[in-house]
Design a protein around this nucleic acid. Sequence first.
RNA 1: GGAGGGGUGUCCGAGUGGCCUAAGGAGACGGUCUUGAAAACCGUUAUCGCGCAAGCGAUCGCAGGUUCGAAUCCUGUCCCCUCCGCCA
Length: 415
Amino acid sequence: MLDLKFIRENIDVVRQAMSNRNTEAPLDAILQLDGERRQKIIELEDLRHSRKEAAKERKTDKVSAEEGRDLRTMIKSLEDEVRNIDLQLGELLLQVPNIPHSSVPVGKDESGNVRLRSWGEPKPLGFQPKPHWELGETLGIIDFDRGVKISGSRFYVLKGLGARLQRALIAFMLDIHTKEHGYTEVYPPYMVKKETMIGSGNLPKFADNLYHDAEEDFWFVPTAEVPITNLHRDEIIPGGYLPINYVAYTACFRREKMSAGKDTRGLKRGHQFDKVEMYKLTTAESSYEELEKLQLNAEDVCRHLDLPYRVVSLCTGDIGFQSAKTYDIEVWAAGCGEWLEVSSCSNCEDFQGRRANIRYRPAPDAKPQFVHTLNGSGLALPRVMIAVMENYQQADGSIRVPEVLQDFVRAKVIR
RNA sequence: GGAGGGGUGUCCGAGUGGCCUAAGGAGACGGUCUUGAAAACCGUUAUCGCGCAAGCGAUCGCAGGUUCGAAUCCUGUCCCCUCCGCCA
C-alpha cells in the first residue's frame, strides 16, 4: 500500500509509475475522497470537542441533555460518513501497486525484461534428453496417476528416492541459508486467519488464487511470505535489530485459476508445492544493498547444485504488484528444453511494511519508520527437482545425485 | 467439546459512569549530589490523524451499542489462562 500523503503530494510521480507499469489505478477517485475525508474530519473533530465541553458543563446544568443529544446525532452521522469514505479509500488504495524503483527497466510486458548475467552453460548430454515426467515414471519416483486418483489434476506423488531427493534439497537449502548466509530458520503455520492474508496484501484482491476453509475461516498460505510478513505485524522493532533475516520451508497452496490448462504436465505447476523462502526486514537505507545479497544467496543454491542459470531484471510491466524491483532466476532444464523460473527476489520497500504496520525506530528517540521488506525464493522445489532430474540424467535413464546431496540421499545414482 | 477467569502504556499493575488530562511501581534516559559509581532526589519516558505552528482530536485486545458523558454498562468477536474430557 502506498502512503496516501505521498500520492497526494506526488501525484505526477504516481501517474508516471502506473503508466510505466502499463496499468491503471483509480488515482482521481482517491484524490477526491481524500479531500472529502479531510474536510469531514476537521468538522468531526470540532463537534467532538464541543461534545467534550458540553459534557463537562452538563454537571452545572448550563447545557441541556437535548443539546447533547443533538451533538451526538451529528457526530454519529459524520462518523458514519467518514467510516464509509475510509472503507472506500482503503479499497481503492489496495488497487494501487508499488512504484517501480528508478533502476527498473521500463517495458510493457515480459519482453521488456533485461538479462543481467548468466552462470554455467547448458551442456549437450550426448543423447536425446528425456523430460522429467518420463524419467520420474520410469524410475518409479514420481507417480502422476495415483496423485490424480487421490487429489485430481495438478497433484502427484513422490516415492522412494524421489521423495528423498526433494527432502535432501529442502535440508540443503535450509542449511546453506542458515549456516552460510545468516538467516534464522522459521517454521510457520500453513493455515492463517483472514487478517493475516489482509496484512500481507493477498486479500481481498487476490482471493481467487487461495484455498479457503469456509467453516473455520482458515486460509492456506500460497507462500511462506504470508505468515512471515505477519510475524512482526503491528510491531515497532527497536533500533539496531535490523536487518532481520528469516528463511522458512513451507508447502504452498495455489488454485492456479489464471493458468487453467497451462503447464499441466509434470511437476512445473501444482496446486501444492514446496518452497524455501528467504525474507528480510531492513531499514530504508539498506534495502537495495540487501536485495543484492538476497539475490546472490538464491544464486548460490543454483551454483552449489551446478545448475546453469540466468538472472533477469523484470521490467516495469512485469514486476509484481507489491514489488519495487524484482530479479528472477531461471535455471536450464535439459529435458523439456526450458528456462524455468526457480526464484523471484523482490524489494517491496515500505509497501508491505505500511500494509502490515511493521515499523522500526531508527534511533532511541526517533519517530518509528516503516520497515522495508524483501522476499526471495531460495528456491522453489518442484522446478529445482525438474532441473536436477533432467540435467543429471544419463543415457540409460538413471539420474546422478548432485554431489552436495549425496550424503543426505545416501546414493550417488537414482536408478 | 464442557465449566470458569482474564486482556489497561516498554513491563508489572490500580481503576465498576463525570477533576481518567489513566494512580502507583519497575525499567530506560537526562539532571542534581559525588573524585567516580551506587543510593537518594528532581525530571523525561506511547502511537496515530489534521495543522506551518500553537493546538485540536483518536486510541485501555478489536468491532458495534447504551448514555449529555464510557477504560468502566450491554452485544458480538479475537486472543490468552485454569480445570475436565478427547487426542498425534
